[in-house]
Design a binder for these strands. Structure first.
Lengths: 256, 256
DNA sequence: AAAAGGCGTTACGAAAAAGTCACAGCTTGC
DNA sequence: GCAAGCTGTGACTTTTTCGTAACGCCTTTT
């Protein structure tokens, strides 16, 4: 069972993945971010980093442009193309002087772009800004409604999850879920086909919500039950994997 | 993610001046705007920019706040004081974290205000919005709101919000709202169907003058209550999403 | 087959979130 | 400078959600 840091009121604890091959820098960043209360995972290679992201579902990725295996822009591209990481924020790092990179970085959808060498303090400030913005999506005053398309709808078989509206439909009928149930379902569905242990579910669905300390893993069972009940599932959609955890039924029929 | 910023059908070709000293960013903007069919002129200094504007009489100026010679606010001030450039739209850019600037920016009459770092995509959307808002300017006859051009009137079911005149109608009856209530309602309605957290609402409706998280999120509740009361709502229009925030009732039925 | 462990299910108290209200500090306009 | 109206906040109430314990069924193990 994982322990969670206590969060200060105004401070949002985030899960952050750092993909950086310079170990010194990586450690400096990790240490500082952890000091700020964030949960940090590190990788030195692009592919490792991608796997880590899929596994951990972070809020933010700090991504070096130059990596041993594949370029950071490639990583960014894949992160952006995956449905499973929608809403993810990316901050790119780059060695100085590479002008064109910046263009590419922004166009690929990096949320910020920092040129090395940078002051750690500045970087932390920017990270804070990104994370804050993250919660308020597009930031600043609404200009015109039609400009904000909600491409944030997740569809999987009969299931449809609208994260922006915070609504769930099963076969066309809306199911009223509580905030926790919603997150639980989202966690499972966004990783459909993959077994998630109770500990993992507590980590993700409960996230920073559970700041007080450990919650019994049995609690998950109860919520799974409630969730199944609400979405009218008898174990077909949310499958029990005895001794391991739960899994949302995969839509894939096999290996592509 | 490949972004296309090609010109769309109902598109006015505009003349745009970009005043930005970071050449990278300036070029990114210029390139994208030109791709969208606009005529673009660039300057790296404030005074050059002013001259350029007087010379070219653009429709829109994109103005960085920090420039090598004079502050962007100065530029804005002079643009606004000149009769020759009335009707001009101005979008200001600023480095993040400078809260007070934002106030100044809006008060000086910027049409929009974007904080760096921003996603280019978002900026272009906003530029499009500003341009589309067109030359309707002020001068809205307050007597017949239903006859106004679609520019500044927002209609959603029984609700009609006239931003220019700062009036709100529900089913034909005008509701007298305070400035804050008006912004709150607008924020919710313009994002109808989407859940906005209390933090988001504070960010947007309270906008500038909420320095820091100085205001309790509970305050939002109170204003929601007042707003509901005034527009005669019992939770049908402004829906409570427990544990998440509030949502203005969507006009869509939610099912495709 | 009995024991042990894992899980489904239920019910209930505790706690959190939202609704509501009154009041005080601040502007604003007169 | 006064009165009127906004706004923010704390206290209180109501509503809803969450965590846990308890019990029983089913599966696995010995």
């Amino acid at each position: 069972m994982t322990l969670h840091f206590a969060a200060t009121e105004s401070h949002h604890v985030a899960k952050i993945v750092v993909i950086e091959d310079e170990v010194d820098l990586q450690q400096i960043l990790a240490w500082n971010l952890r000091s700020a209360g964030h949960e940090v995972f590190t990788a030195t290679h692009g592919l490792d980093g991608l796997a880590l992201c899929e596994d951990q579902q972070p809020d933010l990725v700090i991504l070096d442009r130059m990596l041993p295996d594949i370029p950071g822009t490639q990583v960014l591209l894949r992160l952006r193309s995956g449905v499973k990481t929608s809403g993810l924020k990316v901050l790119m790092l780059t060695a100085c002087g590479e002008e064109s990179d910046r263009i590419v970085g922004f166009e690929l959808g990096a949320d910020d772009y920092v040129v090395k060498p940078f002051s750690v303090r500045e970087l932390l400030l920017r990270i804070g800004a990104i994370l804050r913005r993250g919660r308020s999506e597009e930031s600043t005053p609404p200009s015109r409604p039609e400009l904000l398309p909600d491409g944030d709808v997740f569809v999987l078989g009969d299931l449809r999850i609208d994260r922006a509206a915070h609504r769930v439909f099963v076969g066309g009928d809306e199911k009223k879920l509580t905030a926790l149930e919603f997150r639980l379902l989202w966690t499972l569905a966004s990783q459909h086909g993959k077994v998630l242990s109770r500990a993992q579910l507590l980590d993700r669905a409960w996230q920073d919500w559970n700041t007080e300390g450990a919650i019994t893993t049995r609690t998950v069972d109860t919520h799974i039950k409630r969730l199944r009940e609400k979405i009218g599932d008898d174990g077909d959609l949310i499958e029990t994997v005895r001794g391991v955890g739960y899994r949302y039924k995969s839509s894939d029929l096999g290996e592509p």
